[in-house]
Nucleic acid binder design. Structure first.
Length: 512
RNA sequence: GGGGGCGUAGCUCAGUGGUAGAGCAGCUGCCUUUUAAGCAGUCGGUCGGAGGUUCGAAUCCUCCCGCCCUCACCA
């Protein structure tokens, strides 16, 4: 609703619908009037491109007194001095000061400077010089007002690293990310880190012979993770389809087909709660390597993360939430049940049985929803008591099979699976296992999941007959990995919330 | 859903019972090397909403709305 134009009418009351998202009528009208004046003076606002401009960064780094340059960007501040004015111009590469002087501009052009506002987008041409206070500045000889900002952007003032009046309201920052990006240097930095991380993942895997593939986002049977799916309806097919909760079962079909190293980076969708670590749609890297196992995947992951950290941050040591974390390999390895024993003193080994686990859960004061299965108890103990303490990167290994319906059993320990999850900074960033390639065992695991579903576990897996059929044609042994890319970016950028690393995070629909 | 916090001018915020403030932004002047430009003047708020207590409410009480955090949920 606040996307509509502010109401006309009363010029004394700010339009309050939409709260701080709305400019007052008076400010809007003033800017409209300036637009009219600019157009009347022959300025074709909104109507032309500004080709052949150079990046602002080039003006700063390639500075030479008297160098002629064409620059374009948004005006972030303007300081008028009667017959002259200074303004700060910013483009994607940096900020530079421009100097506008009546007798240096073509006849009549300086009059348009008074109709410039913070937020306007201009193209300028002129020569570089240094002011008497030592600042590199463009002396403008030609000015083009390209776009007028009719609303005042929330650009604070700043000097050095101190800032005034910046946009702070979290709701506005998330709903109108463009304002956040305009106003907050740190927001821009985080999304650049994100871009580099994803590029780094691709470069790392491509260099190791992995093929990037794309598998269905709309799936007839959602699988590969325990999560509630979003449902949608395909009209022509007269069928329900599900937005994928994971690409896993399709990627494994590719192993059956003969691909040996594949990965996919893409969006998964889970119809579950939203928190600082969860967004309904999130980006996952999944990869599979035939003939490998979870040990090989551990080495791949620790190497990938530390090398990306070096590329993006220039080192593999990071400060996350005030703690120093070293990402250089090798990362610690710790069996899950031992980690739980270390933190809680309780032994949740599967052979001790569900009743014993339930008793332990009671002693630990864990609140567990029905059905209170062994798998859930272990999971609760892990998430509640162990994960938050895992700051330095660590692989927790050997998960109960009951928690891991797609993972291969450990040799000699049939109730445990060759699985690990990687944690750092208190965040779960990856999940991996030696993939189960035994179609008979897989069918039994699915049947156990279906039994759990019948008991009310809506997140349990469904039967996927076609996937079983694929396994029956023979899938090579393989190691598989899933990485929460958003969380990895959180870790590497120091973000406190997943919403700070997703450009347009899911929020409650705006209404009023 | 439980618990906590917040909501005052376009922005950032003061103001805890006496009738609404500052800086910045805006507007009007002056100012041709400023940079949180400066100087002078000026506009702007049903203090999230409704009800209540009170001689008097931004302030106290109740309910509601919105957002954030946290717990639960999310292998």
């Amino acid at each position: 609703m606040p996307l509509s134009r502010p109401r006309r009418g009363s010029d004394r009351a700010a339009v309050r619908r939409g709260g701080n998202l709305m400019e007052s009528d008076a400010l809007y009208e003033q800017r409209l009037e300036k637009l009219r004046r600019l157009r009347a003076a022959g300025e074709p606002v909104y109507e032309r491109a500004f080709p052949d401009r150079e990046p602002v960064q080039e003006a700063i780094e390639g500075f030479a007194e008297g160098r002629r340059m064409r620059l374009a960007g948004r005006i972030h501040s303007i300081r008028g001095h009667g017959g002259s004015a200074f303004a700060d111009l910013r483009d994607a590469t940096g900020r530079i000061q421009i100097y506008l002087r009546r007798n240096l501009l073509p006849e009549g052009v300086f009059d348009r400077v008074r109709d410039l506002d913070i937020g306007d987008i201009v193209g300028v041409e002129g020569t570089l010089f240094v002011t008497k206070t030592g600042e590199k500045t463009l002396e403008v000889r030609g000015l083009a007002v390209l776009s007028k900002a009719l609303r005042e952007p929330p650009l604070g003032k700043s000097k050095d690293d101190r800032h005034w009046y910046a946009l702070a309201d979290t709701e506005t920052r998330y709903r109108r990310r463009y304002l956040d990006l305009m106003a907050n240097e740190d927001a821009r930095r985080v999304f650049l880190v994100r871009s580099r991380v994803i590029r780094g993942i691709r470069a790392f895997l491509d260099a190791r012979g992995f093929a990037e593939v794309e598998t269905p986002i709309m799936q007839p049977v959602p699988g590969g993770a325990a999560a509630r799916p979003f449902v949608t309806r395909h009209r022509a097919l007269h069928a329900d389809l599900y937005l994928r909760v994971a690409p896993e079962l399709y990627l494994k079909r590719l192993l059956v087909g003969g691909f040996e190293k594949v990965y996919e980076i893409g969006r998964n969708f889970r119809n579950e709660g939203i928190s600082t670590r969860h967004n309904p749609e999130f980006t996952m890297l999944e990869l599979y390597e035939a003939y490998a196992d979870y040990g090989g995947i551990m080495r791949l992951l620790e190497e990938m993360v530390s090398s990306i950290a070096r590329d993006v941050l220039g080192g593999d040591s990071i400060t996350f939430r005030g703690k120093e974390i070293c990402l250089s390999p090798p990362w610690a390895r710790l069996p899950l049940l031992q980690a739980i024993r270390d933190r809680t003193g309780e032994d949740l080994s599967p052979e001790r049985g569900e009743a014993e686990a339930l008793a332990a859960a009671g002693r630990l004061g864990l609140e567990i929803e029905e059905p209170r299965t062994y798998a859930k108890i272990v999971d609760e103990a892990l998430k509640g008591r162990v994960v938050p303490a895992l700051l330095d990167p660590v692989f927790l290994t050997e998960y109960p099979v009951a928690l891991s319906p797609l993972a291969r059993r450990s040799p000699g320990q049939p109730l445990l699976a060759e699985r690990f999850q990687a944690f750092a900074g208190g965040l779960e960033i990856a999940n991996a296992f030696s993939e189960l390639c035994d179609p008979l065992d897989q069918r039994e695991r699915f049947e156990a999941q279906i039994a759990a579903r019948r008991l009310g576990d809506e997140e349990a897996h469904r039967m996927d007959d076609d996937f079983i059929a694929a396994l029956e044609y023979g899938m090579p042994p393989a190691g598989g990995l899933g990485v929460g890319v958003d969380r990895l970016v959180m870790l590497l950028s120091g973000a406190d919330s997943i919403r700070d690393v997703i450009l347009f995070p899911q929020l409650k629909p705006e209404h009023r």
